[in-house]
Design a protein around this nucleic acid. Structure first.
Lengths: 325, 325
DNA sequence: AAGCTACTTGCACATACGTGCACGGCGGTG
DNA sequence: CACCGCCGTGCACGTATGTGCAAGTAGCTT
């Protein structure tokens, strides 16, 4: 209940000491023992300082995959779709849940260097991105913002709690301003959307979306046995599914649907969805997609065909599935 | 699956395993024990794989200093000279040698993210940069090169062994092509330089120098009690020192001298030196200077005045000296 | 085929690191 | 002033990681 933002005189010094400790540890390879001596404190305090530095995002660790390490088949995929693959190693024995967790954790760390001060990141919230949100690495940024790409309300709830939970995790991790998007995921009537889209308060958000530097999204798939959040929580009804089926839809990004060839024009449902048009999305300079599980493969193929993705974070087993045709 | 018989790992497989282990360790926070289970090997092998990954530069660790952590005085320095400060913490008790070692180690790591594929780095070899060379973190790059900025020969030796030792350390660490510069550090006669500078083989090197993306240099100081390499190893004679003194020189970068106000025009010695003119150096997009020890302060002030530096790596004690005026 | 060299591997031990716990300082509260 | 709760600390212990060593293997040489 109380605001923890209080400024203890120690709080600022703690960061200073943590930075110093982290520098001595990571840049000068001193042991914690030696650092303790330099800081006139105990080794255990140094251990705590360094964990703090990591948790606070003062330390950034990247694992770099040299391009030539990637198999030829994957290189062809990369070139064909202008996408950078980030393959997450996961044991074949892992179940879907573990797999998603591990991909999400990796995604959170891979994402980190993509976002910085003065940038805007768009979030297409959903079950995959929610998992990513739970593993974010904090990072200090300034003048940055997080913008919600797709509405959250549905026929049962306003969805705001769930969506804003996700959004604020991102906001907190990066110290960024969070821009909510208080509209339904799908409108009942396209006309309502058109009218609402003329409102200045909404257009403000749409403008921010248009100018985002990074888009982060998972993939929805109406075909799956394990459907995404959007397909199980009362967002769509029988008729909607029929409509999607009739349009030969294979997946969606931020509630906007596309076909196997990547096209999304003339899909009636899109007139009612709250997310950004895919051709607009494709103009964002970095478009990060997180995928886990073979059930998303058809959706993934479509998204690649539509060139929606510049960085694909995907587990090993699924990327292998992508190569089998 | 082949069963128990150990397979002879090619170096390529080793890298693959190291990458996987590093990813699991740093991105997914698994313990080495757990990674060993996934890789069907022993924990100790995983420990070795991960050290290998670090040594091979597959893992990059950065400590980031949030801008607001820097004291106001230092911020003013940064703004005044358009320089980014990288302050290396070193205990006050450390002697000059330890201090240099630690600054050099930090410098090597700070440098790492500045250099990448398709780039050219110019090296002004000398005692400081030599120390940096001993601590380089390997990094895989392609189509990159290292170019020597100042000649090495003097009246006693060709200096090639020493200089090329330094150069090749950089080349090895980055997998970059090394471009030597086989000329004397200082010519006896300016005319000789002019003539030689018209040779195509030399002009090739000069052209590469002009197009470099990163310049790395220490500072020479003719005034110091602890003079730089150039001043102790037979590169200059009595008369030269007199000439420098008459020109009010406070320091040099790659054998090119400048005064306290940063000017370098009309310094006779510069007509004879092998390094790039300072106004040319100042056009390089990233210019990294490594400084350790208060004896270099006058030289540092001059180099800042000349705007030769975009990134200054400096120990704590020395940067404090910079503020005292 | 045997012998040699230059590896890599896993074990056992050594070292380094993380963390529960009890102590003590400090600020707020009655 | 006494009390209380909160927080940071160092200690001691448990866990995680690093490394010398002996054994084993592949690739060569003789």
């Amino acid at each position: 209940m109380k605001a923890l933002i209080a400024e203890h005189p120690t709080s600022s010094e703690r960061v200073r000491d943590a930075l110093r400790a982290a520098h001595l540890y990571y840049m000068q390879d001193l042991t914690m023992e030696a650092i303790a001596a330099e800081l006139h404190t105990s080794r255990s305090s140094v251990s705590r300082l360094i964990s703090y530095a990591r948790e606070a995002g003062l330390v950034e660790i990247q694992v770099k995959t040299p391009a030539e390490r990637i198999s030829n088949a994957l290189q062809r995929v990369q070139e064909k779709y202008h996408v950078t693959l980030h393959v997450v190693p996961v044991p074949d024995s892992a179940n879907e849940v573990d797999r998603l967790e591990r991909v999400a954790m990796s995604a959170a760390r891979i994402l980190n260097p993509f976002f910085d001060s003065n940038m805007t990141m768009g979030i297409a919230w959903g079950s995959t991105i929610s998992a990513v949100g739970r593993h974010l690495q904090p990072k200090v940024t300034h003048n940055s913002q997080i913008v919600q790409l797709n509405g959250a309300a549905n026929t049962r709830t306003t969805g705001i709690v769930y969506a804003s939970e996700i959004m604020s995790r991102f906001g907190n991790a990066y110290g960024a301003y969070v821009q909510q998007f208080p509209v339904p995921a799908f409108f009942d009537d396209p006309a309502t959307k058109q009218v609402l889209w003329r409102e200045r308060s909404i257009r403000r958000v749409l403008d921010i979306q248009k100018r985002m530097d990074v888009a982060l999204f998972g993939l929805g798939t109406p075909l799956s046995d394990v459907p995404g959040h959007v397909y199980t929580s009362g967002y769509l009804d029988e008729q909607d599914f029929a409509s999607l089926s009739a349009s030969n839809v294979v997946g969606d990004v931020a509630t906007v649907f596309y076909r196997a060839d990547g096209s999304s024009a003339d899909v009636p449902m899109n007139l009612r969805s709250s997310g950004p048009p895919l051709d607009q999305l494709a103009r964002v300079s970095r478009r990060v997609c997180v995928v886990s599980g073979r059930s998303r493969l058809p959706a993934l193929r479509g998204a690649l065909a539509a060139h929606l993705i510049t960085d694909l974070i995907i587990d090993e087993a699924t990327v292998h599935g992508l190569l089998e045709d």
